[in-house]
Simulated scan of single mutants.
Amino acid sequence: MLLYALLANVVEKPDGITISAFFVVGIVAISLVSRVTRTTELRADHIDLDDPARSFVTDSLAHDGQLHLVANRRQRGEAGEYAEKEEAQRGMNPVPGAADVLFLEIDVVDPSAFSGALHVRGVQVDGHRILRAEAPAAPNAIAAVLLALQEATGVRPHCYFEWSEGNPLGHLFRHLLLGRGDTPPVVREIIREAEPDPSRRPGIHVGG
C-alpha cells in the first residue's frame, strides 16, 4: 500500500524526484571534477623513511653512486617474485648491468584521501631490498618518493616499469576510483608538474 502511494505521488508530482536527481548528478559531477583535477597532485605532505629504508638507500648509493628502483605490485611477496621481476626489468629496460636494484612497492589504502605523511618502510626478502609504503594512490606515492630521494641525496633516481595490459580508458577510471591503473604515464606527468626543470626530473623508464 505504501509503495503504491509512493508511486502514485511520484507520477502525479514528479518535481521532488527531478530536484533530487539534479542534486545527485551535481554531487557526482563535482566529485569527479575534484578527483580529476587532483589526479596529478603528490598527495603527500612529507616523506618519512625508517632506518632500514635509509640504510638501503645509503648502501645503494655506496655501490655505484646511483639509485635504480623497480616498481613492483606485490603478489606473493616471496623471493622468487623479486628475482623474476628484476630479471624481467633488466631484459626490457636499460638497467645497467652492475646496477644495485631496490624495489618500490605501494599498497593502496583509502583512495579517497589526498594528503598526509608517507611512511616508507625498508623490508628485506631473501636479500631483495624493498621500499614499501601505504598511500591513497600508487602513481602519486611513487612520484613523491622519487622526488624526495632526489632532494635528500642530490642523485637523480631512475625508476623502471612495464606497461599494463588492458584498455587505457579502463586504466584511467581505475586510477580515478581505486588509485591504480597504468602507472608509468601518471607518474611521469606528476613529476613533470612538480619539477619544472627536465634535467632534475627522476628518470622514468617503461618497457614491455
Rank of each mutant, 00 (worst) to 15 (best):
L2D: 15
Y4R: 14
A5D: 10
A8H: 05
A8P: 01
V10N: 01
E12G: 00
K13D: 14
I17K: 01
A21N: 11
F22K: 07
F23K: 07
F23G: 05
F23A: 09
V25T: 10
G26H: 05
I30W: 15
I30V: 11
S31V: 06
L32H: 07
L32W: 09
L32T: 12
L32K: 08
S34K: 15
S34Q: 14
R35K: 06
R35C: 01
R35P: 02
V36K: 01
T37H: 11
T40C: 12
E41N: 15
R43T: 00
A44P: 01
D45I: 08
I47G: 07
L49M: 06
D51Q: 13
S55M: 07
S55Q: 15
S60W: 00
A62R: 09
H63G: 08
H63T: 09
D64N: 11
L67P: 06
L67D: 10
L69M: 00
V70K: 00
R76N: 11
R76K: 12
A79L: 05
G80C: 03
E81V: 01
E84C: 02
E84N: 09
E87Y: 15
A88L: 11
Q89T: 01
Q89V: 05
Q89F: 08
G91N: 10
G91C: 04
G91P: 03
P94L: 14
V95G: 04
G97C: 07
A99Q: 07
D100L: 06
D100Q: 11
V101C: 11
V101H: 12
L102G: 13
E105A: 04
I106Y: 00
D107I: 13
P111W: 02
S112L: 11
S112K: 14
S112Q: 14
S112M: 02
F114G: 07
F114P: 00
A117T: 13
L118C: 12
L118N: 03
H119T: 13
R121V: 01
R121F: 00
G122M: 02
V123H: 00
R129V: 00
R129C: 09
I130V: 11
I130R: 04
L131V: 06
R132H: 13
R132D: 08
A133D: 15
A135K: 05
A135S: 12
A135V: 00
P136C: 00
P136M: 01
A138S: 12
P139F: 00
P139L: 07
N140E: 08
A141Q: 13
I142L: 11
I142F: 09
A143E: 14
L146V: 11
L147T: 10
L147V: 07
A148K: 14
L149W: 05
L149R: 09
E151S: 13
A152V: 12
H158N: 08
C159M: 12
C159K: 00
F161K: 04
E162V: 10
W163M: 13
S164D: 07
S164I: 07
E165W: 02
G170T: 12
F173N: 05
F173Q: 06
L176M: 10
L177H: 10
L178M: 13
G181K: 00
V186Q: 10
V187E: 14
V187M: 05
V187Q: 02
E189T: 14
R192L: 14
A194N: 06
P198K: 01
P198H: 01
R201L: 04
P202G: 12
P202F: 12
I204M: 07
H205R: 03
H205C: 06
H205V: 09
G208I: 02
G208L: 02
